[in-house]
Amino acid sequence: KRPMNAFMVWARIHRPALAKANPAANNAEISVQLGLEWNKLSEEQKKPYYDEAQKIKEKHREEFPGW
């Protein structure tokens, strides 16, 4: 399985609240909304998620060399 990128790290945190706020929305609609919200963030706001994604990527590389 591929390691999460910065957007996926961010979305994992924000998806539950968005789903709760929009109970009639299906998963595809929630994903679209998450994408729109992510694109509104500044690079500075995204930086912690890029940092976390890098850590996940490095850990994945250690656990699965050659993947």
Score class of each variant (00 low, 15 high):
1 K>V: 09
1 K>T: 11
1 K>R: 09
1 K>A: 05
2 R>L: 01
3 P>Y: 11
3 P>C: 08
3 P>R: 11
3 P>T: 13
4 M>V: 08
5 N>V: 02
5 N>T: 10
5 N>P: 02
5 N>K: 04
5 N>D: 03
6 A>L: 00
6 A>N: 03
7 F>E: 11
7 F>P: 02
7 F>T: 00
7 F>W: 03
7 F>Q: 07
7 F>V: 02
8 M>A: 10
9 V>K: 06
9 V>E: 11
9 V>N: 08
9 V>H: 05
9 V>L: 15
9 V>F: 06
9 V>M: 07
10 W>E: 04
11 A>C: 09
11 A>W: 01
11 A>M: 02
12 R>L: 09
13 I>S: 08
14 H>S: 08
14 H>V: 06
14 H>F: 03
14 H>Y: 05
14 H>G: 02
15 R>V: 02
15 R>W: 05
15 R>S: 08
16 P>H: 07
16 P>S: 04
16 P>Y: 05
16 P>W: 02
17 A>Q: 05
17 A>Y: 07
17 A>W: 10
17 A>V: 15
17 A>H: 08
18 L>G: 01
19 A>W: 06
19 A>T: 10
20 K>L: 11
20 K>C: 01
20 K>P: 01
20 K>F: 07
21 A>M: 08
21 A>L: 12
22 N>M: 09
22 N>Q: 11
22 N>L: 05
22 N>G: 01
22 N>R: 05
23 P>G: 03
23 P>M: 01
25 A>Y: 08
25 A>E: 04
25 A>L: 15
26 N>A: 11
26 N>D: 11
26 N>R: 04
26 N>H: 05
26 N>M: 06
26 N>P: 04
26 N>E: 07
28 A>H: 06
28 A>N: 13
28 A>Y: 07
28 A>T: 10
28 A>R: 08
28 A>S: 11
28 A>I: 05
28 A>E: 13
28 A>G: 09
29 E>W: 08
29 E>M: 03
29 E>K: 03
29 E>L: 03
29 E>V: 03
30 I>A: 02
30 I>K: 01
30 I>V: 10
30 I>C: 02
30 I>W: 02
30 I>H: 03
30 I>G: 02
30 I>N: 00
30 I>F: 02
31 S>G: 12
31 S>E: 15
31 S>V: 08
31 S>W: 12
31 S>L: 10
32 V>M: 13
32 V>Y: 14
32 V>S: 14
32 V>N: 15
32 V>Q: 05
32 V>P: 02
32 V>I: 11
33 Q>E: 08
33 Q>W: 06
33 Q>S: 06
33 Q>H: 08
34 L>S: 01
34 L>K: 02
34 L>F: 00
34 L>C: 04
34 L>Q: 02
35 G>W: 15
35 G>Y: 15
35 G>L: 13
35 G>K: 15
36 L>Y: 11
37 E>N: 04
37 E>Q: 07
37 E>R: 06
37 E>G: 04
37 E>F: 06
38 W>A: 00
38 W>G: 02
39 N>S: 10
39 N>T: 09
39 N>Y: 02
40 K>L: 07
40 K>A: 09
40 K>V: 03
40 K>C: 05
40 K>R: 12
40 K>T: 05
41 L>I: 05
41 L>P: 05
42 S>M: 03
42 S>Q: 02
42 S>D: 07
43 E>S: 06
43 E>T: 10
44 E>M: 09
44 E>G: 08
44 E>K: 10
44 E>Q: 13
44 E>A: 11
44 E>T: 07
44 E>L: 09
45 Q>C: 07
45 Q>I: 02
45 Q>W: 01
46 K>F: 00
46 K>I: 03
46 K>R: 04
46 K>Q: 08
47 K>H: 07
47 K>S: 07
47 K>I: 07
47 K>E: 10
47 K>L: 08
49 Y>Q: 00
49 Y>V: 01
49 Y>E: 00
49 Y>R: 00
50 Y>S: 04
50 Y>Q: 08
50 Y>W: 04
50 Y>D: 03
50 Y>I: 11
51 D>Y: 04
51 D>S: 08
52 E>S: 02
53 A>C: 07
53 A>I: 03
53 A>M: 08
53 A>T: 04
54 Q>N: 11
54 Q>M: 15
54 Q>C: 07
55 K>E: 12
55 K>C: 10
56 I>E: 09
56 I>H: 14
57 K>T: 09
57 K>P: 14
57 K>L: 09
58 E>T: 15
58 E>L: 10
58 E>V: 10
58 E>A: 11
59 K>I: 12
59 K>D: 13
59 K>T: 10
60 H>M: 15
60 H>P: 10
60 H>Y: 11
60 H>E: 10
60 H>K: 09
61 R>T: 11
61 R>P: 10
61 R>Q: 15
61 R>M: 12
61 R>Y: 10
63 E>P: 13
63 E>I: 09
63 E>L: 08
64 F>D: 12
65 P>R: 12
65 P>I: 09
65 P>L: 08
65 P>S: 14
65 P>W: 04
65 P>G: 10
65 P>Q: 10
66 G>T: 13
66 G>K: 13
66 G>Y: 07
66 G>S: 10
67 W>Y: 07
67 W>F: 11
67 W>K: 15
67 W>M: 14
